[in-house]
Design a binder for these strands. Structure first.
Length: 463
RNA sequence: GACCCUAUCGUCUAGAGGCCUAGGACAUUUCCCUUUCACGGAAGUAACCGGGGUUCGAAUCCCCGUAGGGUCACCA
């Protein structure tokens, strides 16, 4: 049993492609099969090495490791031509020498007559020699009559009339195969048993099945996934913001959060929302995929991301957070990743947010929130702060629990509530009155820096 | 235009003829917890596209509309 993900490298890996890859991957893992990656780069003009790299990077970040590949179609042209020529010899394909102009007139005329535009089979049964100097193309001799039954694992049985189909080009005049042909040859040669791909290929499937049959090859099983739409119900595009999976990485999402979110888009397992990777690989089945397109909802993705930030072991989060800290040139904060996670995991929806919030401890204080300063700094609070400072300075161990004890003792000695001390400490350390639990806020600053910041506020308060 | 696909709360979905006064999750509203910001807890608002059948009974099956989407290339 084998599945594949076969993107064409004309852009980055977007969420729709990522979900197709995920479902193919899961189906293979679930059934103990192989998952292969094939780059469909037969369009020499639109394919770029940058896009190949972007797709590979996206797959790697998501952790969708292929068992084979990546294969490149551009390296298999000899094989495609070999098969095309075999088909000519067997009478299931033929050369066509129609010019672009002829084709265009044909189409224009059909459209004028209100017919479906398609190749009329002009060269299908001609045996006269090729026009001099013409290279021509090779076309597949599609059956004229009868029906093609597609047994789709998500759509059920879909029936197409051969009359609706025409003789498609399988080998172009610029010596390259076309998509519909290369796919058939590759899926056969590579032993792909289960084709899982986007909805937009459903209409190509009967043509491909006809080619499998002409070649005497076994037809694989098909599953056509519904599309992922933008939040407004329109097709996903750059206008909707982050469509590249790597953009989600940059925005602070965990790969597993995206995976979990994507899995639930078009697929479900009862009321379950949270799935570990192991659960996905055991529970997923292409048979359970929905029929209708779904919209991408960033809010739910955020919820999942926050869920994983809250619950994943710090050891798993630390490398991801470190990456973000480094992106923000907070390299020296990396060794405190675990402490940052402890302080902020319930206060950040994304890792990017976490890294941004962590910056207050590792960059010079920018200044105070003056409105809060005016409200919170007074004789009482300054006295409390300086009492706390004395205790902090005397601390043998700079640990959160010890700091918390110091805070509690200070409050007890002065008979004050936390409300009298909290705001001014936050102001001193972070410049604002919003921050994580006090002991972590102070602790993460480091003893020297924390005391300096307290002194700075006290000095200004006294003046 | 032709062919193909789809249709349950704002969104993701459960639902495979009676278990449905339609369940869960996100979002939203209110309340509780609380030193800030959060986390957490409780409650609430909110949906079967329309019309015909079939059946004792339909969100579920059939037909017709309607609305979305996809495909009709020497792109993939």
């Amino acid at each position: 049993m084998k599945t594949r993900f076969a993107p064409s490298p004309t852009g980055y890996l977007h969420v729709g492609g990522a979900r197709t890859a995920l479902f193919s991957y899961l189906e293979a893992k679930k059934r103990g099969g192989q998952f292969i990656l094939r780059v469909e780069d037969t369009d020499l003009v639109r394919s770029t090495p940058e896009a190949v790299q972007a797709i590979l990077d996206g797959m790697a970040w998501l952790g969708l490791q292929a068992d084979e590949g990546p294969y490149f179609q551009t390296q298999r042209f000899a094989r495609y031509l070999e098969v095309a020529e075999q088909m000519i010899a067997a009478g299931s394909a033929y050369r066509c020498y129609c010019s672009k102009l002829e084709l265009e007139t044909m189409r224009a005329q059909q459209e004028a007559n209100g017919e479906k535009p398609r190749y009329n089979g002009l060269w299908r049964d001609r045996s006269d020699p090729a026009p001099i100097g013409e290279i021509g193309v090779i076309r597949f001799k599609n059956p004229l009559t009868g029906t093609v039954h597609v047994h789709d694992r998500v759509r059920g049985e879909v029936i197409f009339q051969n009359e609706e189909l025409d003789d498609l080009v399988i080998w172009r005049s610029d010596n390259a195969p076309t998509y519909n042909f290369a796919v058939v040859v590759d899926d056969h040669d590579m032993g792909v048993t289960d084709v899982i791909r986007g909805d937009d290929h459903l209409n190509n499937t009967p043509r491909q099945i006809n080619m499998y049959q002409a070649l005497g090859w076994a037809v694989p099983s098909f599953a056509h996934l519904p599309m992922i739409l933008g939040p407004d119900g329109a097709k996903l595009s750059k206008r909707h913001g982050a469509v590249s999976v790597l953009q989600y990485r940059d925005d602070g999402f965990l790969p597993h959060a995206l995976l979990n979110y994507l899995a639930r888009l078009g697929w479900s397992h009862g009321d379950q929302e949270i799935f570990s990777k192991h659960e996905l690989t055991t529970l997923f089945s292409a048979d359970d995929v929905n029929h209708s397109a779904s919209r991408f909802d960033l809010e739910k993705l955020k919820w999942l991301n926050q869920h994983y930030i809250k619950t994943l072991p710090a050891a798993e989060l630390a490398p991801e957070l470190t990456w973000h800290l480094q992106q923000r040139s907070l390299t020296h904060a990396s060794k405190h990743a675990d402490d940052i996670i402890t302080a902020l995991r319930e206060r950040a929806v994304t890792l990017l947010e976490m890294a941004e919030k962590a910056a207050v401890w590792f960059t010079p204080l920018a200044g105070y929130d003056e409105t809060q300063y005016a409200k919170q700094v007074n004789a009482t609070s300054c006295a409390a702060l300086s009492a706390l400072r004395a205790k902090l300075a005397a601390l043998p161990n700079w640990r959160p629990d010890a700091i918390l004890t110091a805070i509690e003792q200070t409050l007890a000695e002065l008979s004050l509530g936390m409300g009298k001390l909290g705001p001014i400490v936050r102001l001193a350390i972070t410049g604002s009155t919003t921050s994580p639990a006090l002991e972590h806020t102070i602790y993460l600053c480091g003893s020297t820096e924390a005391l300096d910041r307290i002194d700075a506020l006290l000095a200004r308060g006294a003046a």
